[in-house]
Design a protein around this nucleic acid. Structure first.
Lengths: 209, 209
DNA sequence: CAATGTGAAGCCCTTCACAGCG
DNA sequence: CGCTGTGAAGGGCTTCACATTG
């Protein structure tokens, strides 16, 4: 049952891209797509597409391809996106605000339902219908909304504390936007998104070439 | 001279983490650090740290370790961060605004110097000293500020156009925040940052485990 | 016959283990 | 003696090539 027979994490990222293309194709009335179609739209190879899908089952018809809508539904199910997920954001700064307004989350079923901050001046503010609460309210809100996912949008100096608080409140999947290595127990899922490091990859490549 | 004797892109991301730790260590007066110190602070293995550094030279002293400040300077040089980089943002929505306010860029030498948007209502607005210009001004601003880096912060439907415009203006390193595969000529550096996909990796892992 | 599904090959990155050196 | 630097081993992901099947 458990999915722990080793699926590359890169595969999961690609499934996300495939699903967007499939939704688009379905919306355009394209009933059947081939691995080549998917590959060209998402910038990977056809073999990669088939391999990725094969981890989860046989979704296609040989000689034909895949049914856009069906494959879309399968992938969304695989990704756990056949339902909506409430999300907590820690940090009511500019990044926290932008995340609350970001439409790309709602499109995929992520519902940022509260923001938390220690700054008394920010408590009660609203970012696109999302209210800012004091950190002390985290545990209760997590329970009430059954929140499993959290986003760290505080400076590096407070990131570990933010993570600790989320874990204490029983959040078990965390995205960390702070440029620091946050340490968590191994049963907690943690992903780091380092915005500056993305630009640094570009400057590294542009330098002296 | 060219760095094209294959350095893993993951190495570049780790160098970024190492450099932050080294700066911190240096600020705390720690003169010498070992690969183990760096590894523990950044969540990798000591062997990985040494291997990463070995791609670029011999920076340490056997039996001792690395000089924090020197290694920091070496890495910043490798990453091209021994100078400041002007950056253009396309899209004056919430994401564009947040990126302009994000302090993590300035800390690493990235200076967002203008934002571009087609919405007449937004032209002339200011996001933390960064002025919003019409898209038509892109080419001139790129020339004046010698901008090499751009960030796509528009919806998926306009992302390809934004990329094309940047390339026409001679920007050659692009970060794409839109959840779509933008196609560019192979001499253009492109990195995709998919915020929703990060959360999706978590939901995938939380599902059914 | 066309496109999927898949073992095998290939490649790239990480880890290991130890030689090298201050 | 301790920690770096590194060839070799290992592991995991991608690509290949073709058997399979509707």
């Amino acid at each position: 049952m458990s999915k722990k027979f080793k699926i590359p994490s890169a595969t999961i990222g690609r499934l996300s891209m495939y699903s967007r293309y499939l939704k688009d194709a379905d919306n355009k009335g394209i009933v059947t797509v081939s691995s080549r179609n998917i590959a060209e739209a998402t910038g990977v190879t056809p073999a990669q597409v088939r391999k990725d899908l094969a981890y989860f089952g046989e979704f296609g018809t040989r000689g034909v391809g895949y049914n856009s809508r069906e494959l879309y539904n399968y992938i969304m199910k695989i990704l756990g996106l056949d339902r909506s997920w409430p999300v907590a954001v820690i940090g009511a700064g500019n990044l926290g605000r932008a995340l609350c307004h970001y439409k790309g989350f709602a499109e995929r079923g992520f519902n940022i339902c509260c923001v938390f901050d220690n700054d008394p001046n920010k408590i009660g503010e609203k970012f696109a219908d999302v209210e800012v609460f004091p950190m002390s309210a985290l545990e209760e809100k997590v329970k009430v909304h059954n929140i499993k996912l959290g986003i760290i949008a505080v400076p590096a100096s407070s990131a570990q504390e933010a993570a600790d608080n989320m874990i204490k409140a029983r959040i078990n999947g965390i995205i960390n936007f702070a440029p620091i290595n946050v340490i968590v127990n191994e049963n907690i899922l943690l992903r780091r998104v380092d915005l500056a490091a993305q630009l640094e990859y570009l400057t590294y490549s542009l330098e002296d070439n």
